[in-house]
Design a protein around this nucleic acid. Structure first.
Length: 390
RNA sequence: GCGUCGGUGGCGGAGUGGUCAAACGCACUUGGCUGUAAACCAAGCGGCUUCGGUCUACGCAGGUUCGAAUCCUGCCCGGCGCA
């Protein structure tokens, strides 16, 4: 199955240059060039699920130093729908973002709307937990088959189907610079037999995605395998051997930072050195050094905006929950070392008041700061690699 | 003045003889969140506690009852109607 030939493959509009390789770690400094400009790597990729970085407009997202965004195929398929997106000429014009864009394939929703919802959990484990999800299990709300995944529209219950062909077709309508192969993001509770079956299916889907592509958009294959080293290695070897333009690394990576670095490092060792790697859905500020030193070039995370709306600000001295009463009288900025417009202008006291009063502007100020902060942290990673410190 | 309805925890508001320290919502406190199901979710929220309890509480004061936030009497306060 994986021996399909890709002779008719079109030339893709993506270039990757490695400017420097660290002597201390797997970290590397690079530039990804796309039709919409360059991405200096390592880069943080803000999440714009429904063609918006929640609470911010595209100009603000650029203002805080974002180089590239990732949107979501499943969510844009549900609303406003493929036709409308196609008619808009794709996401770039639709959301007024002329820098590079990625689209996630919908593979994460196979997890988040499936077992993730069933077990009320995210893809990251906090503690060691029993891997009790057995081969053949199906989540409550959707059905995973060899051909793809049957969903139901969260809006009106309409049956939806997403498989490799459909995902690529929709992603081509969305027109991002970088597409991702349709995969199953397996639950962190999946046992090794479930994981093996899932990974093999994701590999078959990967080949079908390559075959389905007819545009010049770049396409990244996705490595799975959870925290099982042998499955990660197998997946990295299989996916790495296919003519993708880059590689995503998805799923879970164990329940601590050391495990994250180990698992991702083992994967990047097996992937082609001249192609970019994207770590999917990991990026709390404290993770950044682990991610870069494991050899990932880009990585996305909902953290800055997701936490912002709940009152958590990322600062140089850790997280603070701005809604805590003590901040109501605190005249300092969110972070005294931050250079963003919010920290130059507004006090913790004011932002605490806005968040406690559920004012939308509070969520916006928080999102603006957090996104600036994470982009600045990524900038710092590049500086450290350049200086030989990482 | 007469009649009538009502006074419940920080607020709103259930309860109308025992299973009531009192539903539910808000507010408040704490915790969680990593390819967005998420401006969300969970726990706590009278005092003391060796966590089994125990004391004080449903306008105030009495009473009936084995037992009252719930029934009776008086008083205080508020809404409405009639004078």
């Amino acid at each position: 199955m994986l021996a399909i030939r890709y002779a008719a493959r079109t030339f893709c509009m993506l270039e990757f240059k490695v400017l420097k390789r660290s002597k201390k770690s797997r970290a590397r400094l690079g530039v990804i060039s796309t039709p919409h400009g360059d991405i200096e790597t390592p880069a943080f990729v803000p999440v714009a699920t429904r063609a918006t970085v929640r609470t911010l407009d595209s100009e603000e997202v650029a203002e805080v130093g974002s180089q590239v965004l990732i949107c979501n195929t499943y969510h844009l398929y549900v609303a406003p729908g493929e036709k409308i997106m196609k008619k808009a000429g794709g996401i770039h014009g639709f959301m007024n973002w002329d820098k590079p864009l990625m689209t996630d394939s919908g593979g994460f929703q196979v997890f988040s709307l499936g077992f993730g919802k069933d077990h009320g959990m995210g893809k990251a484990l906090k503690d060691e937990q029993e891997k009790n999800l057995v081969e053949g299990s199906q989540p409550h709300a959707l059905k995973i088959t060899e051909e793809g995944v049957y969903f139901r529209s969260p809006l009106d219950g309409t049956p939806l189907f997403l498989g490799p062909k459909e995902s690529i077709r929709i992603q081509q309508s969305l027109g991002a610079d970088i597409m991702f192969a349709f995969d199953e993001c397996p639950s962190p509770l999946a046992n090794i037999e479930y994981m093996r079956t899932s990974v093999e299916r994701t590999h078959r889907w990967a080949a079908l995605c390559l075959k389905a592509r007819t545009s010049k958009q770049a396409l990244y294959g996705i490595v799975q395998g959870g925290a099982f080293s042998e499955l990660r290695a197998h997946s990295a070897a299989q996916i790495g051997a296919l003519p993708f333009d880059g590689f995503g690394i998805g799923g879970e990576f164990g329940y601590d930072k050391r495990s994250l670095k180990k698992v991702v490092g083992e994967v990047t060792d097996l992937l082609p050195a001249d192609k970019p790697r994207h770590l999917l859905g990991v990026g709390h500020p404290e993770d950044f050094p682990y991610i870069a030193s494991a050899g990932a070039d880009t990585f996305d995370c909902i953290a800055p905006t997701h936490y912002a709306r709940r009152g958590v600000a990322f600062t140089s001295s850790g997280r603070i929950d701005i809604r805590n009463r003590r901040f109501l009288t605190d005249q300092k900025p969110l972070d005294k070392t931050c250079t963003c417009d919010i920290c130059k202008t507004y006090s913790r006291s004011y932002i605490s008041h806005l968040m406690r009063a559920h004012e939308l502007s509070g969520m916006k100020l928080m999102s603006y700061h957090n996104l600036h902060f994470l982009n600045a942290q990524a900038h710092e990673l590049r500086r450290r690699i350049k200086n030989g410190d990482l």
